[in-house]
């Protein structure tokens, strides 16, 4: 237990989030604070109103798009691999492979290496830099899909299923429900890679971030707003919208939509059916169970803290492997962009 307290004594779990004490900085705090490190742009990680924010340039751009003047008074960009000193803590961001700009945070202090994974995945994604494995002593891992029933198939295979369903129902349109940051752009890029070059129609809520991705050099092909398009023009087309829109009056303007949803939760078919999804696609921007387990082992960490999701099973797994593990309960995280 001595080792554990030595590791933990400069990290503190406060109601605002994880505090790096000697640097006076929080990682992904759930409330506005003076100094924050933000792993990526999803709403439950990138909150508005911080004083100073350290993040990758892409994450800062995403925050400016989503939060406007609430994106942090002082924005400090750090590129992947660049070490920044905060107090006597060395902070380095590494790619997390989750969404554009997403980072893991390496903290080096008092001879100990701590990695905060943020949200991550190890499957390839054409819209962001791939995950880097960072060896460490203490690994603080996410656990969104921390149950062995979650195994994500290759995303390309799910896109093939989407295109096959579309081919079988030419008179309908496919309404694909996606989270606005990351999943949306990844699905578009995967569709393009699969040869689908027809215009893709977007719900208004998705347009700004698609524009930002395009500005940052990610090619998404022709995108049109749903607003101002006649239903006839959208027959046989693929339309993207946030999940809430599939239950909204908004979708009445679409020609006989077939509701598809791309998410890791779609793996559990009974749940997908309850949500009224007709075509469930298992595409996730989070690590699946096998990746979570493999990554814990590969970091060589002696100790693991599990947070952000279903902690219990992953703690059990790590303990069985002889790794000290505990659930780190933090409030304020939700099922985002899963």
């Amino acid at each position: 237990m001595a080792r554990r307290s030595r590791m933990a004594d400069w990290l503190d779990v406060r109601s605002e989030g994880l505090l790096v004490v000697p640097a006076g900085v929080y990682i992904d705090p759930v409330r506005s604070v003076d100094r924050a490190i933000v792993t990526h742009g999803h709403a439950d990680h990138a909150r508005p109103g911080h004083g100073a924010v350290l993040a990758t340039p892409e994450t800062l751009a995403i925050m400016r798009t989503r939060l406007g003047d609430q994106a942090g008074r002082h924005q400090q960009p750090a590129t992947y691999g660049e070490t920044v000193r905060l107090g006597n803590v060395a902070v380095t961001l590494f790619p997390a492979g989750h969404v554009l700009g997403s980072a893991q945070v390496l903290l080096e202090h008092a001879g100990t290496r701590v990695v905060v994974s943020g949200d991550y995945k190890r499957q390839a994604d054409p819209t962001c830099t791939s995950f880097d494995l960072v060896p460490c002593d203490l690994f603080i891992t996410e656990a969104t899909f921390g149950l062995p029933v979650f195994r994500h198939p290759p995303a390309e295979q799910e896109v093939t299923r989407l295109l096959a369903a579309r081919a079988l129902h030419r008179d309908r349109c496919v309404l694909l429900a996606v989270y606005g940051l990351g999943k949306c752009q990844r699905m578009i890029a995967l569709l393009r890679a699969a040869g689908h070059d027809a215009p893709i129609y977007l719900h208004g809520a998705l347009q700004a971030l698609c524009r930002l991705y395009t500005d940052l050099g990610i090619k998404l092909g022709p995108l049109h707003p749903v607003v101002g398009t006649t239903p006839d023009a959208m027959a046989g087309a693929i339309v993207l919208a946030p999940p809430s829109a599939t239950r909204d009056r908004w979708m009445r303007r679409l020609p006989d939509p077939m509701v598809a949803q791309a998410s890791g939760w779609m793996r559990v078919r009974q749940r997908a059916k309850q949500r009224g999804v007709e075509l469930p696609l298992v595409v996730s921007d989070h690590a699946d169970w096998d990746e979570l387990c493999r990554t814990i082992l590969e970091t060589g960490a002696e100790e693991v803290w599990v947070t952000h999701g279903r902690e219990e099973a992953l703690v059990h797994f790590a303990t069985q492997q002889g790794i000290r593990a505990q659930a780190l309960s933090m409030v304020g995280f939700e099922e985002d962009g899963a």
Partner: peptide
């Protein structure tokens, strides 16, 4: 243990 946690979740 992993099976029971999973069965609980999936139902």
């Amino acid at each position: 243990v992993l099976f029971d946690l999973s069965y609980d979740f999936v139902g």
